[in-house]
């Protein structure tokens, strides 16, 4: 059985037995090329589910709309780490989620109505193919995963500070503050975002470089030690702003300083949720 067939069979079984009320997965979008999220409530509908290299969405965010209700979710390794993040942060209950983990071949770019063979950038850098946790696994678990590396971040770090400042000013100046990056992110679930506060007004409503600068800086920092690297933010950005370069810098820092990678499990407290009294951090030295 291929991945799609396994998912369909599992979804049908779960809905028929009443183990879950809903299965969140993917179906083919109306363009016939891309995938889109599908919520299956009836066993008869399970046949619509698909899985292939176009299933780029991280569906974990939808679990936030199903709090306390038994739900199964089709999840790639990065998505599974998002589920762990939400469990860790008490947004989702582990025993209400059934994870249909998928061994991931990497997602490909779809452009101009065609599926290309080119892996998405995040998938090219990703070293994880088997989900860290699952209730049911689709595909064969691979060998041990290689260590994460940050060649893209290292290239930025190698630039002079003036070059970096100019680079980000140019990038952020294109931001139209649609907030799609936030809407797509599984870690951005505050009911009131600082960007929408009116008093105090942290981010002014006008589209100006300085307002986009504070938005992008804080959007990324709010994910420090929490970002699981699914790259949904960058995928949905209509202005092609390389948000992964910000997220991955923070990921690299928190990994180096605290040996922490978000979502690897659902128990270890996030770096900003804890501390060690005797740690040396070169702050207040």
């Amino acid at each position: 059985m291929n991945a799609t067939e396994q998912i369909v069979a599992k979804a049908r079984e779960l809905l028929e037995s009443g183990t879950v009320e809903c299965v969140i997965g993917y179906e083919r979008a109306t363009d016939g090329v891309n995938a889109r999220p599908l919520f299956v409530y009836q066993a008869e509908e399970a046949g619509k589910l698909i899985f292939d290299q176009t299933c780029a969405h991280n569906l974990a965010k939808y679990l936030l709309n199903r709090k306390g209700k038994a739900t199964a979710i089709v999840a790639k390794p990065c998505d599974v780490r998002a589920v762990n993040l939400l469990i860790n942060e008490h947004q989702v209950e582990r025993d209400k989620v059934l994870i249909i983990g998928v061994v991931c071949p990497g997602m490909v770019e779809t452009k101009w109505g065609r599926v290309s063979e080119k892996l998405r950038q995040a998938c090219e850098l990703c070293r994880e193919h088997t989900p860290v946790v699952y209730d049911f696994l689709v595909g064969e678990p691979g060998d041990e995963e290689a260590a994460v590396e940050y060649p893209d971040v290292a290239r930025m770090e190698a630039l002079s500070i003036e070059e970096r400042r100019a680079f980000w000013e140019e990038q952020f100046s294109r931001c139209i503050r649609c907030y799609a990056c936030r809407q797509a992110c599984p870690g951005c679930y505050c009911s009131e975002c600082f960007a929408e506060r009116l008093d105090p007004l942290w981010v002014g409503i006008r589209i100006a470089p300085s307002e986009s600068w504070i938005w992008n800086t804080m959007r990324a920092f709010h994910l420090a030690g929490r970002c699981i690297g699914c790259n949904q933010c960058e995928r949905v950005c209509p202005m092609n702003i390389p948000l992964s370069l910000l997220n991955r810098k923070l990921e690299k820092e928190t990994l180096e300083l605290f040996g922490y990678r978000a979502g690897v499990d659902a128990e270890t407290p996030a770096p900003f949720a804890t501390f060690r009294k005797d740690e040396k951090l070169e702050v207040g030295e």
Partner: peptide
Amino acid sequence: RRRLAVLRPFLEY
């Protein structure tokens, strides 16, 4: 201390 230890290199970036 933890937050600032991450914020500082991030701002530098």
